[in-house]
Write a protein that binds this DNA or RNA. Structure first.
Lengths: 206, 206
DNA sequence: CTAATACGGCACTAGTCAGTGCCGCAATCG
DNA sequence: CGATTGCGGCACTGACTAGTGCCGTATTAG
């Protein structure tokens, strides 16, 4: 990830804080503007660093951005960070709360910016997949599976496909339609698509 | 759309062919590379035109691209251009045929490239919405509604939401996952999501 | 102390690209 | 015919930016 400092002994030590500050600044800029408009100058200024401090740690612009993507915080998408309200429907709605939605919206913006990079750098696909796409899908898959396990719904025909519905449609709406992913929209997807595709469990499954 | 030529009388006439050639070339380049990599030079070369010929007709790069988006051919998404195979499921699958998929895939690529422009130019949202997003949704809405009308399924809880499922998920897969929208994937969405969310009609609806 | 490294700031190079001006030629009107 | 406009090609300007070198300063090992 970070360029290895030479193993010499003397000299001032690299500030580990700077690594995080630079990566955070990169994500900030990435979330605010487009990939093409992300300049090292901007990132450096945002991080309160010199450009050299960046180039000393990463090979170039692409490496920096890939590293930043890789450190996107998706902890809120782990099983322990997800809501557990008792019903799948309110679990989904809980993801709209600022706690989670702050992360989601940020992830969406970053995803949008990086999409431009994806067409050029195949490695960006892996980075985005690991850091954003997979965790999102996994989160929804987890919520649905848990609801199935507790007998709320019957096992779906295709869990993976269902788990991708909400992230896909939210991303589509946020990017291409530039409309807010608000409660009204989420309810339309939740009730009109995801829950509609799930069936009540048969007696045998209870 | 096109810059108005001065209403003078004498002089050589503008070649109407060139307008179309330039717009097509713009769409070609847009479908092949990213928005940031679309240079006027490239478009001009592709269209066999000089850069002046472009600047004479459009204010600048953005105007050109907006005009190109607006003239994206979505005729295949009108009711008359859509497949009518008898069942909703095979209608969906028929959209994968090269006839339609050529257009769909091209639209997806263009959509992807323009997404970078969207964050900058709000007008791009309207252009993309009118030329690509709305026609796609309308096409799927039409197919579903027709199936409902013929008694294949009961009226869905939320037709608009259902109509956006396939375009959204196909776009998400194509952009962010950079994976092919092939038959396997389409079947997963169709059977696992869309048709799963539709119910058999009750006797009263037949 | 000295040597070595990190840091921020500045200046510089090199490359790219939007947009414009000019040239020569073609077409069209009067 | 001459005036006017369209066209392709070329050269040019101006702006921006990735990446590098240099300077003065700060930090750390020996």
């Amino acid at each position: 990830m970070t360029r290895t400092p030479t193993a010499g002994k003397a000299g001032r030590r690299r500030d580990p804080e700077k690594d995080a500050q630079i990566l955070q600044a990169t994500l900030d800029v990435l979330a605010e503007t487009d990939y093409a408009d992300v300049t090292i100058e901007l990132v450096a200024a945002r991080a309160g660093a010199g450009r050299h401090t960046i180039y000393r740690r990463w090979e170039g612009k692409d490496e920096l951005i890939l590293a930043a993507i890789a450190c996107t915080d998706s902890a809120d998408l782990g099983p322990d960070g997800l809501p557990d309200t008792g019903t799948l429907r309110s679990d989904f709605l809980a993801l709209l709360d600022p706690n989670w939605m702050g992360g989601s919206e940020r992830r969406l913006r970053i995803l949008s910016s990086v999409s431009a990079m994806i067409t050029r750098t195949p490695r960006a696909v892996d980075a985005v997949t690991k850091a954003i796409v997979d965790p999102s899908t996994a989160a929804y898959r987890f919520l649905i599976q848990r609801a199935v396990d507790r007998g709320e719904y019957a096992p779906p025909h295709n869990l993976d496909a269902l788990a991708q519905v909400i992230p896909s449609m939210a991303a589509y709406r946020a990017f291409f339609m530039q409309q807010v992913v608000d409660e009204e929209f989420m309810l339309a997807i939740i009730d009109g698509v995801v829950l509609a595709a799930l069936r009540e469990p048969s007696a045998a499954n209870r």
